[in-house]
């Protein structure tokens, strides 16, 4: 925990107003940042020899529709030498869902950011190749957003079996 607290204090000093807050839950620390300070914060965490957070473990997002700010982009960085991990969170509005890309700092972020773009529609400024990765190329929409439906089909029970059977598009030879 000491190293994490040291990292949090160091970030607070380096970022100034971009450091929004910190919360600790079940022993895990998450630092909330403003979108503008993200690259500076991550560079600070990676390059400062006392901190040494050199591995990006996870990059994902969550959608809080209809609450604003809508998106929260979440990062987890590890320090292998000190054996701690630290979470970072950046909140974005639904209307302007853009944040800086971390690809220049951690090349491992490449596919993770493409996946977040594909499933949520958050664009990453400065990404070398932002296109869909998991969904088909011509898919419309971003599936993991909360306003997109699950997309399920009705379950066939005995009472509606024939009706659904008639509508189901069976393949021909």
């Amino acid at each position: 925990m000491n190293h994490v607290e040291k990292a949090v204090d160091s970030l607070r000093g380096a970022l100034g107003p971009a450091f929004v807050g910190v919360d600790v839950f079940r022993g895990q620390t998450t630092v909330e940042l403003a979108a503008g300070g993200l690259q500076q914060a991550v560079r600070h965490l990676r390059d400062d020899p006392g901190l040494d957070f050199g591995f990006l473990a996870a990059l994902t997002a969550a959608d809080r529709w209809p609450a604003e700010p809508r998106f929260a982009v979440l990062y987890q960085v590890y320090s292998l030498a000190h054996n701690v991990f630290l979470g970072l969170r950046v909140r974005l509005d639904g209307a302007s869902a853009e944040v800086d890309s971390l690809e220049s700092i951690f090349p491992a972020a490449n596919w993770h950011e493409r996946e977040v773009f594909d499933l949520f529609g958050i664009t990453f400024r400065g990404h070398s190749d932002l296109r869909r990765i998991l969904m088909p190329y011509d898919w419309v929409g971003h599936p993991l957003r909360k306003d997109q439906p699950q997309g399920y089909e009705e379950v066939q029970f005995t009472f509606n079996f024939d009706e659904i059977d008639r509508r189901k598009p069976y393949a021909r030879e």
């Binding site: 473990a57 996870a58 994902t60 987890q76 596919w111 993770h112």
Partner: peptide
């Protein structure tokens, strides 16, 4: 393999994300 789990006070998970190893290795 890591699991990011976010609850919302209800009985269903609000957001589950799995950071899977093969995704990172294949990059």
């Amino acid at each position: 393999l890591a699991c990011y789990l976010e609850g919302d006070g209800g009985p269903k998970p609000y957001r589950v994300h799995f950071r899977t190893p093969s995704f990172g290795n294949l990059q």
